[in-house]
Design a protein around this nucleic acid. Structure first.
Lengths: 129, 129
DNA sequence: CTGTATCCTTAGGGATACTG
DNA sequence: CAGTATCCCTAAGGATACAG
């Protein structure tokens, strides 16, 4: 921890180019498995993915369990601490799509509620159950 | 640009440990000058600060002008594109202070409106004029 | 498939000196 | 004071091979 500033505190967790993409996959893309994250379009490397999953779990932002339908696989999921990041991601999406044309909105449920942040968060959370 | 994902797009700008701290200084701390940023408590190095200021200006997130009262100094300010990042920063602050005790809230006007995001953004913007 | 490990290259960044 | 430049080291990350 570099300082007691909340921005700095957040950056200590996800101030890099990859961590939030994993959270995005979990929150918006319905992804739960190592292989899903690995094949996201940005092309994360295996060592980075491995490292970030470990750090995220260590920091209590994600959790993991054995996937019952296929017990060689592990299933990752957002903890409450991780779910609490959804509003941050939503604001990033809003900022980017406002600043730059041609970006893909991650999921359809974002349409039609662009200015209602609370409603957006609620919908994303509901989609996780 | 790694992909057309808005999250990834945002991370291309500020997916590092320092960029958003400069934005924070501009948005919440009333700082405008090189030396102010340099002496923020996280201790940014001169080469990094120089590099980030350049990139931020190149990307249209901040602007700069000669400081009229002392014409050897340059004054930095948030552009509209930069001001549009304030909701992102606010959500980061909310997330961090919710997850971790003992963090310092950057400015007093955040108190008393913790759950009214729109009001918070308005207050921060008003403080910039 | 789910990772780890290794090799190697580049980028990030600290320390410090230096210039206008 | 506002930066640039340099030196040097560490961290990040891509490619690939390998293990359970």
């Amino acid at each position: 921890m570099r300082s007691d500033c909340p921005i700095s505190y957040g950056l200590d967790f996800f101030g890099d180019k990859w961590t939030l993409l994993i959270i995005r996959d979990l929150a918006f893309e319905g992804k739960s498995f190592y292989n899903d994250f690995l094949h996201s379009k940005e092309g994360i490397a295996t060592n980075i993915l491995s490292d970030r999953l470990k750090k995220l779990e260590l920091n209590g932002i994600i959790g993991s369990r054995v996937y019952e339908k296929l017990r060689t696989k592990k299933e990752y999921f957002l903890t409450d601490k991780g779910k609490a990041l959804i509003p941050v991601l939503l604001e990033m999406i809003i900022w980017s799509t406002t600043q730059q044309d041609g970006l893909a909105v991650p999921a359809d449920f974002l349409e039609g509620a662009k200015n209602d942040r609370e409603e957006l968060t609620k919908r994303v959370l509901a989609s996780l159950d």
